[in-house]
Each structure stands twice: as C-alpha cells, then as structure tokens.
C-alpha cells in the first residue's frame, strides 16, 4: 500500500500555504492525514503536491472570544476531547470528539480536516450543524465566513473553493437553559457513525422547548439538519409522546444510504431511534436552575 509519488512542502505560515495552493491547482492540504493518507494508499487520489499545514503556529487552539468559542482548524480530536474549558462551556464538542475512531486516530486527526473532508459517516458535521457553527475560510482573496448549514454540499464536497483553507470554527457560547447530546451507532470495525445524531435544545420554563437544532450524520451523502424534527419540537412540552412524534421526521427528505452493513431502511430506523435518544439525553443534560 504505497501511495503514488508526490512532492511535499511543509509551510510555517498560512500565507505560504495559500500561495502554494494558488500556484498548484491540484495540490492538497495535509492536516492530520487520517482521511487523506488512507485514500492515497488506495490510490483513490494521487495529488502531485501535499502542503503540510501541521506546523503552522496558531492554527491549533481552543479559546473564548467575544461570546464565542473559537477552535483552530488544526486542533486535534483529542485536544477537544480533553479540553476542560469545552467540558464546561460546550460539552457537546468533547462528547463528539471522544466518539471518533480510537485513541490514536484522535491524537492525529483534526476538526478542520474532518469538516473539510466531509465524510458522510464523519461525526463532526452533525455536531457543527447542531451548534449552528460558523466556519472561517481564508484564501488569497481574503477571508469569509460560511454557516454550517451552507457548508456541507454533497458527498465529500463542501462550500470551500479551490485555494481556500478552513482556518477556524466559531460557535456561539451556549447560554440559558440549554442541553446537548451526541448519540452514535458506531460501525463495529471502523468506529465511524452508521448513524450519528447531535441534539442542541434550549428550554423556557419546565420542559417547554424554545429552540431545537438537530444535526444528522451517517444517513445520507452529506450531513444535514433534521428541520422536520426541529419544528416538531419547537414550542412543545417535551415528553415521550412528543419526542417520539418529532423523531419520526428524522429522515424527512433525506436519501438514505444502504450498504453491506446497514440497508437504507435500517439506517432510517436507526436515525429515528437515535434521534429519540439524543433528545432525551439532551434534556437530561440541562443544568437544573
């Protein structure tokens, strides 16, 4: 399993990376390499040039700024899983990070690489959608912000343009009575999500749901927001019956994948079951007043 030949450039600034990308149309960014290198070993892709952004300073951080959580694209899954700050202010992120692959994969893989790759069974897209994140992309032409719901375009395809690098993920700090959860059926061999549901709910008094964001991964070619579930939850007192009725909309409008491991019907069934579980777990995680 030897990849085809390629040239390798390690950059120390974002600007250098952007210049190389602008000059070499077919160049690929190398982040943690844990999606790219497997694909290169199978020769599914044969990029002529890899631009390694692994040593750019200040692309790996977790900080709180202007009411937002900001996570650098090169932050590893493990750094997010282990972040005390995030466990306190946005526990959905460490929860999602801890469910990815295995310890070694989490040590090397990055949130930016995972989002840019947009694997249909990747975990981050569900969480990022549920948290209404914004993604900051830079290119030679400057910087722009892309909403999570506009970011995932199709199978392995995002809104990033050629020559653009994902630099940062921004999330509004959850406040008030909110609860989150990520519920995932792990593929037993790879650890990827057969189905993964991220729920982000906010409540008025009692159990009345003020707003709901539900991110779904594993089901279709790309991760999506289950808007049917969201509207069925909003303004409603959540109990078993209303949660069950809402979860029935988990795959509305989605073209479910079927493969050797899970048929499309089974995936739709799992999506409904895991949506119920994610909503129930998110309710439980609401801090008591």
């Amino acid at each position: 399993m030897i990849p085809a030949e390629f040239n390798y450039a390690r950059v120390s600034t974002l600007d250098e990376a952007l210049t190389l990308l602008a000059q070499n149309e077919d160049a690929k960014i190398l982040a943690g390499g844990h999606s790219l290198i497997p694909a290169m070993k199978f020769r599914l892709i044969q990029p002529p040039l890899l631009v390694d952004i692994g040593r750019i300073k200040d692309l790996s951080y977790i900080r709180e700024e202007g009411g937002q959580i900001r996570v650098g694209a090169m932050t590893t899954h493990y750094q997010i899983e282990a972040s005390d700050l995030l466990k306190e202010i946005c526990p959905l992120l460490p929860e999602c990070a801890g469910s990815i692959g295995d310890m070694q994969v989490r040590n090397k893989g990055t949130i930016g690489g995972s989002l840019a790759h947009s694997d249909p069974a990747g975990d981050w897209p569900a969480a990022i959608l549920a948290l209404n994140a914004e993604l900051v992309a830079v290119s030679k032409n400057g910087e722009r912000t892309i909403k999570a719901e506009d970011f995932f375009v199709d199978l392995l395809t995002t809104a990033l343009e050629p020559g653009e690098i994902l630099r940062e993920i921004r999330i509004n700090k959850p406040n008030g009575r909110t609860g989150h959860a990520y519920m995932k059926m792990h593929h037993p061999a790879s650890g990827f999500a057969v189905v993964g549901i991220a729920a982000n709910l906010s409540f008025n008094g009692n159990n009345k749901c003020k707003a709901a964001n539900i991110g779904v991964t594993g089901v279709a070619a790309k991760a999506y927001r289950a808007t049917g579930v969201e509207s069925a939850l909003t303004g409603v007192n959540l109990d078993d019956a209303s949660i069950g009725a809402a979860a029935a909309h988990a795959t509305d409008g989605a073209d479910a994948n079927g493969d050797l491991f899970a048929s499309a019907d089974y995936r739709r069934h799992l999506a409904e079951v895991y949506t119920k579980r994610a909503i129930a777990a998110a309710m439980k995680s609401v801090p008591s007043a």
Binding site: Y8, L30, G33, H34, I37, D52, G54, Q104, N107, K108
Partner: peptide, 15 residues
C-alpha cells in the same frame, strides 16, 4: 509523546 499509527503518517511529517 502522542500514540499514533505509524502506517498512517509519512516519515517527512515526523521531521
């Protein structure tokens, strides 16, 4: 100090 799978890295990355 980080456990990683050395079949999923290029030697040049470890420079």
């Amino acid at each position: 100090g980080q456990a990683v799978k050395s079949c999923t890295m290029f030697a040049v990355q470890a420079d």
